[in-house]
Amino acid sequence: MLTADTVDEQWKLVLGMGDGQISAEIPRAAYARLELRQLYPLVSHGVLSFSRCIRFPWLEDVGTIYRRGEGYLVRRASDGATLGTPDTIEEAVDLIVANLPAGTGPAIDGTAEDVPRG
């Protein structure tokens, strides 16, 4: 399946990034959760985000993990909402999973406009 292979390849890339790109514990913790492992991961400026589609423009309605001093910041880019400021990466991942949009499943082969919303 093309979409699953594309997501798997992107995860391999993200998990292989050095600490200069992202703190390794962030993608490892996210990958451990099936709900996030099936989404398309993106890294920019040390921040891990997820898309429910594999093509640009990506959908930004899933939480994003920022490293913040001794803890983390979890935000959703689509509306700028702060979901929380947890102390541990596990808590940050749990916040994202708890706030997934209804009906979130594996990333689709398409753009943000193609993702079903419900």
Rank of each mutant, 00 (worst) to 15 (best):
residue 73 L to Y: 00
residue 64 T to V: 15
residue 99 N to A: 15
residue 79 D to I: 14
residue 49 S to I: 07
residue 90 E to C: 00
residue 112 A to E: 10
residue 66 Y to N: 01
residue 117 R to L: 15
residue 55 R to Q: 15
residue 115 V to Y: 09
residue 99 N to F: 14
residue 73 L to W: 04
residue 36 L to C: 09
residue 63 G to V: 14
residue 73 L to I: 06
residue 21 Q to M: 10
residue 65 I to W: 08
residue 22 I to Y: 00
residue 72 Y to P: 08
residue 103 G to N: 03
residue 35 E to C: 06
residue 82 T to I: 14
residue 80 G to I: 15
residue 15 L to T: 01
residue 1 M to V: 13
residue 12 K to F: 06
residue 4 A to K: 10
residue 87 D to V: 04
residue 78 S to R: 00
residue 27 P to I: 01
residue 99 N to D: 13
residue 45 H to N: 12
residue 21 Q to E: 11
residue 32 A to I: 03
residue 31 Y to D: 04
residue 34 L to V: 00
residue 1 M to K: 13
residue 76 R to E: 10
residue 26 I to P: 06
residue 115 V to L: 09
residue 41 P to M: 06
residue 103 G to Q: 07
residue 25 E to Q: 11
residue 57 P to R: 10
residue 65 I to A: 12
residue 31 Y to K: 04
residue 82 T to R: 09
residue 10 Q to T: 08
residue 39 L to S: 03
residue 91 E to W: 00
residue 12 K to C: 12
residue 40 Y to M: 09
residue 7 V to I: 03
residue 95 L to S: 08
residue 76 R to N: 12
residue 113 E to G: 13
residue 11 W to P: 02
residue 74 V to E: 07
residue 50 F to R: 02
residue 8 D to G: 08
residue 86 P to N: 05
residue 117 R to A: 15
residue 14 V to A: 06
residue 49 S to W: 05
residue 91 E to H: 00
residue 98 A to N: 11
residue 16 G to Q: 12
residue 49 S to G: 11
residue 40 Y to I: 04
residue 35 E to I: 00
residue 80 G to C: 11
residue 53 C to M: 09
residue 46 G to C: 11
residue 57 P to C: 08
residue 39 L to R: 02
residue 102 A to F: 06
residue 118 G to I: 08
residue 6 T to I: 11
residue 110 G to D: 13
residue 38 Q to C: 11
residue 33 R to I: 03
residue 67 R to C: 00
residue 97 V to I: 14
residue 40 Y to Q: 02
residue 32 A to M: 05
residue 38 Q to F: 07
residue 48 L to C: 01
residue 59 L to C: 13
residue 23 S to K: 15
residue 94 D to C: 08
residue 10 Q to Y: 05
residue 87 D to R: 01
residue 29 A to I: 01
residue 96 I to G: 03
residue 67 R to T: 02
residue 111 T to G: 10
residue 105 G to L: 06
residue 19 D to I: 07
residue 11 W to F: 01
residue 64 T to Q: 15
residue 71 G to H: 04
residue 101 P to D: 12
residue 6 T to G: 03
residue 55 R to H: 15
residue 33 R to T: 05
residue 111 T to A: 10
residue 82 T to A: 10
residue 85 T to N: 07
residue 84 G to D: 05
residue 44 S to V: 09
residue 91 E to A: 14
residue 37 R to C: 01
residue 49 S to D: 09
residue 69 G to E: 05
residue 58 W to S: 08
residue 63 G to C: 13
residue 41 P to Q: 05
residue 111 T to N: 10
residue 71 G to W: 01
residue 16 G to C: 10
residue 61 D to H: 11
residue 5 D to V: 05
residue 43 V to E: 06
residue 3 T to N: 13
residue 107 A to Q: 00
residue 33 R to G: 03
residue 80 G to W: 12
residue 46 G to M: 08
residue 113 E to D: 14
residue 49 S to T: 12
residue 27 P to D: 03
residue 106 P to E: 03
residue 28 R to K: 15
residue 17 M to E: 05
residue 55 R to K: 15
residue 14 V to T: 04
residue 85 T to S: 05
residue 35 E to N: 05
residue 51 S to W: 06
residue 58 W to C: 01
residue 65 I to G: 04
residue 7 V to E: 02
residue 116 P to C: 07
residue 75 R to I: 15
residue 26 I to V: 15
residue 16 G to K: 11
residue 31 Y to V: 00
residue 87 D to W: 00
